[in-house]
């Protein structure tokens, strides 16, 4: 069992090959299967690999995986073809929420020996995962017609100020880790609100691009969490999704003849001014 971690390398290769095959039409289905195998083997290794301070808790792990698998299968079978983009958005939001749940728990484990790098990485995972979570839920709501478009002239200024607040709080917390006990929770709430205010002013027609962008963010959150745990599969898989997701977002904008800035700041399909 002690060599089981070597299988992580196999998982990484499967993820890379799967993503490559997903991006050409004739091999896309195989690519999805290969990526799924890579995921499965990575999860198995993470459950069975030897670990310091291992407490077992396998009942919780297998129970949670069983519940999640059933929910995931049921909804992906049940959804109408036209509803797939909004379901993808919800799934992406759940990935972000998973990053949030681990980052907030890790944040409360810090002590005097924790390095600035470790704390900064964890809080960035918390922030980016939180934005991906609430942002994806708004994107879902817009696609499903449950959230109406709304934009006011000040929303882009509000977002800039709010982003500065998020990053400022993180810097303060990393510099003074034990100043306020509740600051990690406040950072979490502020990040979740930023996800809402970031996506809300963007027009419903641009949601596919936004979902792709939020998907890239979830990947980056996963990569940051991977740095926290020193886990190579998480790091490489997350970075792969982050970088390929960023390029995909730009390609999707180009397909609509717009620039990414125009989509994010322009809101409401204000395509008249786009020069992309």
């Amino acid at each position: 069992m002690q060599y089981i971690e070597l299988l992580y390398i196999v998982s990484t290769v499967l993820l890379i090959v799967g993503l490559r095959k997903l991006s050409s039409p004739s091999t896309a289905r195989n690519g999805n299967v290969i990526a799924a195998l890579g995921m499965g083997s990575a999860i198995l290794v993470s459950i069975f690999s030897p670990m310091a301070n291992d407490q077992g808790n396998l009942l919780y792990i297998f129970g949670a995986i069983a519940v999640g698998s059933v929910i995931g299968m049921v909804y992906s079978k049940k959804v109408e073809m036209t509803g797939i983009p909004e379901l993808v958005s919800v799934f992406n939001g759940f990935g972000g929420a998973c990053a949030v749940s681990i980052a907030i728990l890790e944040a409360y484990k810090f002590d005097a020996s924790s390095t600035i790098g470790l704390m900064g990485t964890t809080y960035m995972a918390l922030f980016i995962g939180g934005v991906a979570f609430t942002g994806s839920l708004i994107a879902y709501g817009k696609l499903a017609g449950k959230v109406k478009d709304w934009k006011s002239g000040i929303s882009s200024y509000f977002n800039l100020v709010w982003l500065a607040l998020c990053l400022g709080l993180i810097v303060y917390q990393v510099a003074n880790p034990s100043a306020y006990e509740y600051l990690p929770i406040i950072i979490l709430v502020v990040s979740l609100i930023y996800g809402l205010s970031f996506v809300w002013p963007i027009g419903g027609a641009d949601m596919p691009v936004v979902i792709s962008l939020l998907n890239a963010l979830t990947g980056i959150a996963a990569a940051l969490a991977g740095m926290v745990y020193g886990n190579m599969v998480m790091l490489l898989g997350g970075v792969l999704v982050g970088s390929s997701g960023a390029i995909l977002t730009i390609l999707m904008c180009q397909a609509m003849n717009r620039s990414l800035i125009n989509v994010v700041v322009g809101g409401f399909g204000a395509s008249a001014t786009s020069v992309a």
Partner: peptide
């Protein structure tokens, strides 16, 4: 597909 891969964060959990 890449959204499914970003679920790799589950390993952290």
């Amino acid at each position: 597909g890449s959204n499914a891969i970003s679920g790799i964060v589950i390993i952290g959990a």
